[in-house]
Amino acid sequence: MSTIIEKAKEIVAVNGMSDKITLLQGKMEEVELPFPKVDIIISEWMGYFLLYESMLDTVLWARDKYLVKDGLIFPDKATIFMAGIEDGEYKDEKIGFWDNVWGFDYTPLKRSALTEPLVDTVEMKAVVTDPTPILTLDLYKVQPADLAFSLRFTLDVRRTDYVHALIAWFDIDFTACHKPIRFSTGPHAKYTHWKQTVFYLQDVLTVEQGEQITGVLTNKPNEKNKRDLDIKIEYRLETEDMGRQMEGVCEYKMC
């Protein structure tokens, strides 16, 4: 849809490829392709938290309408991961700020701030739990209805610390390449503009090595705007010390 296509046309021309490359501007669902079927679909459709403002619906539409049998999709696999992090200093800066704003009580905004996931870079040293895969999408098989889901997760605590937030990121695979290629948007990988998505918890969890945080992650497109997301995280700290048993439910809106 972008006007950058005009520069793309110039680049194609100066490289002598105008007889091989055709550029079309418009929405995938509205343009008319010069061929009834295609052999390959290439798309960078991923958004924050993989699915926020993503164009995956459009890719699936193109797959079902245009891709030949045994055609290829690049990338063709995406996996969402989660982990728990210690982030007390930044949480106090972002969330606790509203407790006292120049002497005024702004706690109504504090509740709103907790419902907005933060997209930011998390340092690996802040990660308290082992990562766990939540969802894997196979682009050859996934359907639009699969993008609304409710899935259980278990996070194994790797060191005694605090957990202030859960983070999510995704890995992308190109399995049809001669040599399979993967890149990650996690805290262990090189920086990408997707960064990581941080979900601050209402509670601070005191965790010890060997314990587990279990829960359910629920995601669905927003009813008013399907590119926005409504996310709910139910969590429970599994511990032998019943005095520290904690559980909670947090709801978030990515919009």
Rank of each mutant, 00 (worst) to 15 (best):
C255W: 11
K125P: 04
P75H: 15
G84P: 10
P180V: 00
S150N: 13
R227P: 04
N15L: 00
Y90M: 14
L137E: 01
R182I: 06
T154F: 03
V12S: 00
F174M: 13
F153W: 03
Y140P: 07
T129H: 12
E53C: 03
P117Y: 01
I21Q: 08
D19H: 14
P34Y: 05
Q196P: 01
P36H: 09
L67C: 09
D87Q: 04
L137M: 06
V31W: 12
L205N: 07
E240M: 09
D92V: 05
D64F: 05
C255L: 08
K253N: 08
T129F: 10
V101C: 11
A189K: 02
T107H: 10
S150M: 12
T175C: 05
T121I: 15
H193N: 09
R159P: 02
I134W: 04
K77T: 14
T175K: 06
V101A: 05
T175P: 03
V12C: 01
A176D: 06
D64E: 13
I4V: 12
K190I: 14
V38D: 01
R152L: 14
P36S: 13
V127K: 10
G84Y: 10
D39I: 03
V142F: 01
I85F: 11
V31E: 11
T129Y: 09
E86I: 07
V198F: 03
P34D: 08
I181D: 04
P144N: 11
E10C: 11
I21W: 09
L114F: 11
I231G: 02
Q196H: 07
A148K: 05
D161L: 00
G16T: 13
L147A: 04
Q202R: 15
E29F: 05
I80M: 06
S54D: 06
P131L: 15
T218D: 06
L217N: 02
V204Y: 04
V128D: 14
T239W: 02
D70Q: 11
P221E: 14
M242Q: 15
D19L: 05
M82A: 06
L237Y: 02
T218I: 03
R159K: 15
L237M: 06
G47Y: 01
V12L: 00
L51K: 02
A145M: 07
L60W: 02
L205T: 04
V101S: 04
Y90S: 10
I40Q: 13
V198G: 06
I40V: 15
